[in-house]
Design a protein around this nucleic acid. Structure first.
Length: 814
RNA sequence: GCCCGGGUGGCGUAACCGGUAGGCGCGGGGGGCUUAAACCCCCCUGAGGGGCAACCCUCAUGUGGGUUCGAAUCCCACCCCGGGCACCA
């Protein structure tokens, strides 16, 4: 029966079975403990790429592993199906984005099935599904009612490539668009925002309790950027009607302020500019306005050109001293009050500016004696600060804030770098914002019973860069829901990150028709126990989803106690090729389909798992598909009796007991590895074990021992290579391997009984002696000293010291 | 500049709590099977040296120091690679 493994037939057979038997469909009333595994909502870009395969292999493996461990595992999937590529395709080909998108979804679905990933397909979600759109719009309205959504005029990020505005999170540090790479410009537009800043403190504090990679948490902390300090007013000299409010994190250094600075966009600029300074100031403001955001953000450029004196002076409330007011491009209107007090002694930027403009510098913190730098930002006693003198920084801060509050001059204040989330997008292929504008009533929400607001199909896609909705009168011109007068529909759609901010909740109850999801279902499944995705979403998606979860709980749509969506997050590494990221534009894609055709799904999955630690990037060039394929075929031959050797029934001998013991050690090892995401070493252990079984068969095996050992290995491998293990199990034992219980190691059997004792002399290995695993320190020492090698090396000398660490090691020091 | 990761054979990786560095796989070499090749099976494979041999010795985990009986692992300094943040007052 020399039957080669026919992966094509076996994979098809089992994929059909898993689907037809509904193996991974779960219900809320399942008595087993609930467990929720989720891979990040994929954008349907067609056939899966290697990054997808890696991601979904991990996800699928966990689903199967947890199920074998007796849990009711919720494993849903859906498609983040709104977005620009479909709209761009429509402009190029005239095909409607829905047609385009649905075709891509089918491709991705068939890819997922082809790698053997299993889901509760009944729960599938698509963002562009009218039912999903409806609940998106309802959520928008609830946020609006709760004050968590609002419309405001603001200088916003405009991406000329995407022809839409972007959220701050979607603009990279270099001022380019996260999606298209175009340079983002600023525009003043009236747009819709979500008040994510309302949750700034909670979003920050709750990070501590999350089992997430520290790297991701740090990135979120930086992004939220909390800083504590004080806000207070500076009286404008000669203008009792004006005050200049500043924010500082260092109120303790206030006695050292020697000038103040406004952002060029500050509303008081005109008021504070004196007649003789006006030409210079206006020229400066004009120049800054023309400067691109990137240039302005860069630290480059001569400081002399980056500021200008206004001609006005303000009073330092701490000592009444008069200080000049400047404008500088490095002060940002969007943060704090858009104005600062400058303390060059303790802030390097202020120091540099003071040097450039010949402004005085007063130190208010005593630097260490060996201090050779310029501005000193470290700890130390206050100096030159009257009643703060001698206090350390933290105490001086508190004292200064108390003083400001006592005198009614200012308040303690916390500021965040985080801005509200701009959700308007001037695009067609997204969820319409359910608002009608009326000359009399203003912005009126569309009544719930009229939802969803759906984009019309009879639109023409033209490369004008503007949303076709703007030119579709049938869509745009409507009656005001409030007064019945002439109204105009909002033609902007929502950021697609809105869709991915609550899909994991909808998965709990995708059948709900009266609400986005039933709170009871969310209560049952949420939070997601294991979330898996790429590090690239560290800020964007993961921060938005956290905000949504809190906001939905607060508006009563989600359980009140549900504050965080993802208890545990795993961020897998990227798949690269030849050192660079695989991408369509680079033309360096390795298609999973080709690999699938050559070696099948199990070998492809194992290749990803074996390639290295899941959190690390992998270079596909170094991935050994062959090795995994060979391993599977070796396993197949062993499992189907195609290995030469002597297998018979007999009484148990020492060699058999050794195999039994090795089997239990394998269980311990592999089980541990599953628990710590160390699949590469789990695969290595299974390979090693298979090699051991080959030797065992060659040297004469006891049938029962071999079968138990082999079947245990199959069980351990079942989550990783589901097709072959299912087939072998059915042939050998009958039934479904994935319905079996996860093997349990017998600790007594797993324990080694004989160990190699390493004998060192002066830290160098000089002998190895087999000893009992439970040998005492004294016995180990005696054995070691009796070793001929040791006796020889000692040459009659007395050991100065003997370190005995049974059962592994004895070190003889002479 | 600051904050995280990471530098181990020809390559990808392993070594979990300071205790045999190199397990697994790739690649390479040798042998078997075969008319032949592929597949498959077995053995060898860090570098250098010694021995007829079983074996033995020395060196080796980015570099340089340190702690320790003992360091890939801990500490200090430095170099290189990857990632994040970077006028946020």
């Amino acid at each position: 029966m020399a039957e080669a493994y026919d992966f094509t037939a076996v994979e098809r057979k089992w994929q059909e079975r898993w689907a037809s038997e509904g193996t991974y469909e779960v219900a809320q009333d399942d008595p087993r403990p609930a467990y929720y595994v989720l891979c990040m909502y994929p954008y349907p870009s067609g056939r899966a790429h290697m990054g997808h395969v890696r991601n979904y292999t991990f996800g699928d493996l966990i689903v199967r592993h947890r199920t074998m461990n007796g849990q009711a595992v919720l494993s849903p999937i859906g498609f983040d199906s709104f977005g620009l590529p479909a709209e761009n395709a429509a402009i190029q080909t005239g095909v409607h984005p829905r047609t385009f998108t649905d075709a891509r979804i089918e491709e991705l679905k068939s890819s997922l099935k082809a790698i053997g990933a299993v889901y509760d397909w009944r729960r599938e979600i698509r963002s562009h599904d009218p039912a999903y759109i409806r609940w998106n719009q309802v959520i928008f309205k609830r946020f609006l009612e709760a004050g968590l959504a609002y419309r405001a005029m603001a200088p916003v990020n405009w991406c000329p490539g995407c022809q839409t505005v972007l959220a701050n999170e979607q603009v990279l540090a270099d001022g380019t668009c996260e999606r298209s790479g175009d340079v983002v410009t600023k525009r003043d537009l009236e747009q819709w925002f979500f008040r994510i800043t309302h949750y700034a403190d909670e979003l920050l504090a709750a990070l501590d309790g999350l089992d997430w990679p520290e790297r991701v948490k740090t990135m979120q902390r930086n992004w939220i950027g909390r800083s504590e300090g004080a806000e207070f007013d500076l009286a404008v000299e000669g203008r009792p009607d004006l005050k200049l409010r500043v924010f500082t994190t260092r109120p303790d250094t206030s006695f050292g302020m020697t000038y103040a600075v406004l952002a060029p966009e500050h509303p008081l600029v005109a008021e504070l500019t004196t007649a003789d300074r006006r030409p210079d100031v206006e020229a400066f403001v004009e120049r800054v306005r023309r400067t691109s955001e990137i240039e302005r953000q860069s630290t480059e450029g001569p400081l002399e050109k980056r500021g200008v004196f206004t001609g006005s002076h303000v009073a330092n409330p701490f000592n009444g001293r008069s200080i000049p007011v400047y404008l500088a491009d490095y002060v940002l209107m969007g943060y704090g009050t858009g104005a600062i007090m400058a303390v060059p002694g303790e802030d390097q930027r202020d120091w540099d500016f003071a040097k450039a403009y010949g402004l005085p510098i007063i130190r208010t913190v005593e630097p260490p004696e060996d201090w050779e730098g310029e501005a000193y930002t470290g700890d130390g006693p206050a100096i030159n600060s009257e009643w703060l003198d001698g206090l350390e920084v933290a105490a001086a801060k508190q004292r200064a804030i108390e003083w400001l509050e006592e005198k009614g001059l200012g308040v303690r204040k916390v500021n965040y770098r985080l801005r509200d989330w701009l959700v308007s997008r001037q695009r067609f292929w997204g969820c319409p914002i359910p608002i009608v504008y009326c000359a009399d009533c203003g912005a009126v929400p569309v009544p719930d019973e009229e939802l969803p607001v759906l984009a019309p199909d009879d639109v023409e896609f033209r490369p004008t860069g503007e949303s076709p909705l703007k030119f579709h009168d049938g869509f745009r011109l409507v009656k005001c829901p409030s007064c019945g007068g002439e109204g105009e529909r909002e033609t902007d759609t929502m950021d697609t990150f809105v869709d991915s901010s609550w899909y994991f909740l909808r998965f709990c109850d995708p059948w709900a028709t009266d609400e986005p999801f039933s709170p009871a279902a969310a209560e049952h499944w949420m939070p997601v126990d294991q979330y898996i995705g790429g590090i690239e979403h560290a800020i964007l998606h993961l921060l938005y989803a956290r905000f949504f979860t809190k906001a939905l709980a607060d508006v009563g749509l989600a359980p009140a106690g549900l504050r965080e969506p993802f208890s545990r997050l795993f961020t897998q590494g990227m798949v690269r090729l030849g050192g660079t990221r695989m991408s369509k534009s680079k033309g360096n894609l390795v298609s999973p389909d080709e690999v699938l055709a050559e070696v099948g799904a199990d070998a492809l999955r194992l290749s990803h798992l074996f390639a290295g630690p899941p959190a690390d990037d992998v270079d596909w060039e170094g991935v050994s598909v062959e090795g995994c394929f060979r391993f599977l075929n070796r396993l197949w031959r062993l499992g189907t009796g195609q290995v030469d050797g002597d297998i018979g029934d007999r009484a148990e001998q020492d060699a058999d007991v050794e195999i039994e013991r090795a089997t239990h050690r394998l269980i311990t090892k592999v089980d541990q590895d599953y628990g710590r995401w160390s699949y590469n070493t789990a695969v290595a252990a299974l390979m090693e074990f298979t090699n051991t079984l080959y030797e065992y068969v060659r040297s004469g095996a006891r049938r029962q021992t071999l079968d138990e050992a082999f079947d245990t290995a199959l069980l351990l491998l079942a989550p990783m290579a589901p097709h072959m293990t299912a087939e072998l199990w059915e042939r050998r034992r009958g039934g479904r391997i994935h319905a079996m219980s996860w093997p349990q190691a017998d600790p007594e059997l797993a324990r080694l009984q004989k160990v190699m004792l390493i004998v060192q002399v002066n830290g160098k290995v000089r002998d190895r002696i087999a000893v009992d695993a439970d040998i005492s320190a004294e016995d180990a020492e005696a054995v070691a000293l009796a070793s001929p090698r040791v006796v020889e090396l000692l040459g009659g000398r007395q050991a100065k010291k003997v370190i005995s660490r049974p059962p592994r090691l004895v070190n003889v020091v002479v």
